[in-house]
């Protein structure tokens, strides 16, 4: 680059002028690209950072909801927990159950876990995956009566895949002819 400048120095002044103009044009262009890149990366970084801070936005856990105070009663919430085994009382599409902070096999579940009663009234029954110890999200409001009134139930499945009992490796030939095999409590945590 400096060699090129030396050459242009020995040439007449007009070409020197135009070449310096060209390089300043090039500089301002690369500056604009740098600014654009900084803006884009800055936005992404900002989003990631603030997203990190509000990572809880999609749902709240039971302890978080209980810490919300009066606000918990007035907002529409999506609360996460595990369905306490043997508490599901189904009546048509409506379900009443206890949502616990921990899965029942979790050692912490023995030490007085925080749990809430959920009363779900909706137009359709919860999904098949909604069962004992399933991780679930209840969407609705927390009533003054201490019951969470849900209008929607969503199961949240683990990303751990294990064969159903009796279907292990021997093949799905057996299993495909039957209803999906439901295994209870084979998840370890």
């Amino acid at each position: 680059m400096s060699g090129m400048n030396d050459n242009s120095g020995s040439q007449n002044s007009s070409s020197k002028n135009s070449s310096s103009k060209k390089s300043s044009l090039k500089n301002s262009r690369s500056l604009r690209i740098v600014v654009a890149v900084v803006v884009v990366l800055g936005t992404i970084g900002y989003l990631a950072y603030t997203g990190q801070a509000s990572a809880k936005s999609y749902y709240v856990t039971i302890p978080e909801m209980q810490k919300m105070g009066a606000k918990a009663y007035s907002s529409n919430l999506r609360v996460e927990g595990f369905v306490k085994p043997e508490t599901i009382q189904q009546d048509g599409p409506n379900v009443r159950f206890v949502l616990s902070e921990y899965e029942s096999h979790n050692p912490k579940a023995q030490q007085n876990p925080r749990q809430i009663t959920v009363d779900y009234r909706g137009s359709e029954p919860p999904p098949d995956t909604f069962k004992n110890d399933a991780q679930a999200l209840a969407i609705g409001t927390w009533g003054q009566d201490g019951v969470f009134h849900a209008t929607q139930l969503q199961a949240k499945c683990a990303s751990k895949y294990a064969p159903a009992q009796g279907a292990a490796t021997s093949g799905a030939k057996v299993a495909t002819n039957e209803a999906p095999v439901v295994a209870h409590g084979n998840r370890t945590n």
């Binding site: 683990a158 751990k160 292990a168």
Partner: peptide
């Protein structure tokens, strides 16, 4: 990984409650 999502955690490298537990799978 960054946010709480409905979508499950990553199957690979997503902690103890993730992964494929069967060689055929």
């Amino acid at each position: 990984r960054w946010w709480r999502t409905q979508h499950p955690a990553p199957v690979f490298g997503g902690g103890p409650d993730s992964g494929i537990k069967d060689p055929t799978m």
